[in-house]
């Protein structure tokens, strides 16, 4: 097998979508839950990202971070620092971060106008 790694085999063109300036909103319920999570320390940020995978191809990734190595847009929404990776900005523009309070399947939820479909568990979308 000639893997071409020692020479100059051309890389395959990756379909990298355009970076979009993201607008997003946080519901009052989600704000309340984030207040509990952040406390008074507003130096931390909510990272709202997308990973590949899941039944529908993309999965949401919510983390509370101090900083990240990813190239991100930093937004301040209702007093919360929100980081959105540029690589997934096209998938996250216009989303609402909500919180659903129920015993099964509760927690933070993303309402995403860009999603054509989502899987049964609601964690992945296409």
């Amino acid at each position: 097998m000639d893997c071409g790694t020692c020479e100059t085999a051309g890389p395959i063109q990756v379909m990298a979508p355009e970076v979009i300036n993201v607008n997003l909103s946080i519901s009052s319920k989600a704000q309340s839950m984030l207040n509990d999570a952040f406390g008074d320390d507003r130096s931390m940020a909510l990272l709202v990202g997308v990973l590949s995978g899941g039944c529908s191809g993309y999965m949401y990734d919510l983390q509370i971070v101090e900083d990240t190595d990813q190239s991100c847009q930093e937004l301040v929404i209702d007093g919360f620092r929100v980081l959105v990776p540029n690589a997934s900005s096209h998938l996250l523009n216009g989303i609402e971060i909500d919180y659903v309070d129920r015993l099964m399947g509760g927690g933070f939820k993303i309402n995403n106008p860009n999603a054509e479909s989502s899987c049964g568990c609601g964690e992945s979308f296409a």
């Binding site: 790694t5 085999a9 590949s52």
Partner: peptide, 23 residues
């Protein structure tokens, strides 16, 4: 296949090279 996978690379450390013609 490439239209299916490459938009999903996002920020992941994945690079793909076509070496078909060498083999």
């Amino acid at each position: 296949l490439m239209r299916h996978v490459t938009p999903r690379i996002l920020d992941q450390d994945v690079q793909i090279t076509d070496v078909t013609l060498r083999n």
